[in-house]
Amino acid sequence: MREIVFDTETTGLSFGGGDRLVEIGCVELVNRVETGRTFHAYYHPERSMPAEAYAIHGLSETFLSDKPVFAAAVADLLDFLGHAPLVAHNAGFDFAFLNGELGRCGFQPVCTKTRYVDTLQIARSRHPGAKHSLDALCGRYGIDRSHRVLHGALLDAQLLAQVYVELLGGRQIGLGLVDDAAVVAAVATAAAVPVARPVRAPRHFAASAGELAAHAAFMARISDPIWGAAAAG
């Protein structure tokens, strides 16, 4: 199964309030294992960068000034996403911006409730009452985040991919009991097929007369054997 774990950086908290998407990072998983394929892009927001947002991700207006606007580069992103389920942390936030940007340039939303996975909801279910930020979950599962100084979409997506696997059972995710009916039927069918085994004639291990005579001669050369003392006692 192919899944895409992704994260975004924005100019603020509300797409409807005029904020824009400025960075997206995506990590491809197949059967919950990272394939090494990623997607990363910066976008010109077509507006100013608030100081509060800059303090979080460090993306300045100068840095973004030569980046493409979202509409000019959206095709590459859609090609990478394909039709895979989309995984994000506090997914409603990221999906609102991604769908908002897509709608703004005439595309249908890709983040629907039947397609997305929210790791924040999974974390709240698995660890009620605990902290559920990405940093807190990395700490809980021993995931190294020492290189995370500022928020970055691709780095956060890579960390989230590891957290996601841990939330679903870690690297032993595939070691559960088999519940696939087709697999069970195949195993049962294989067990019912008789296995042809060659029948060997019985082997005879009795010593020959010559071997018995040689053994007796050897034993006769042993002086004061311990088994003789045991028999005399």
Rank of each mutant, 00 (worst) to 15 (best):
E3D: 07
F6Q: 01
E9V: 03
T11L: 08
G17S: 13
G18H: 02
V22R: 11
I24R: 00
G25N: 09
N31W: 11
G36R: 07
T38V: 13
H40V: 01
H44I: 03
E46M: 13
R47P: 08
A51R: 15
Y54D: 09
I56S: 03
L59Q: 04
E61P: 02
T62G: 02
A71M: 06
A75T: 10
D79S: 10
F80C: 07
A88V: 03
G92K: 08
F93W: 10
L98I: 12
P109I: 09
T112F: 08
K113T: 14
T114P: 00
R115M: 04
D118H: 11
T119I: 01
L120P: 04
A123H: 11
A123L: 02
R124K: 06
P128E: 08
G129D: 02
K131P: 00
L134E: 00
A136N: 07
L137T: 10
L137F: 04
G142F: 03
D144I: 04
S146C: 10
S146F: 06
L150S: 12
A157Y: 07
Y164N: 01
E166H: 05
E166R: 06
G176W: 06
L177Y: 14
D179S: 13
A188M: 07
R197M: 11
G210V: 14
L212I: 07
A220R: 11
A231N: 05
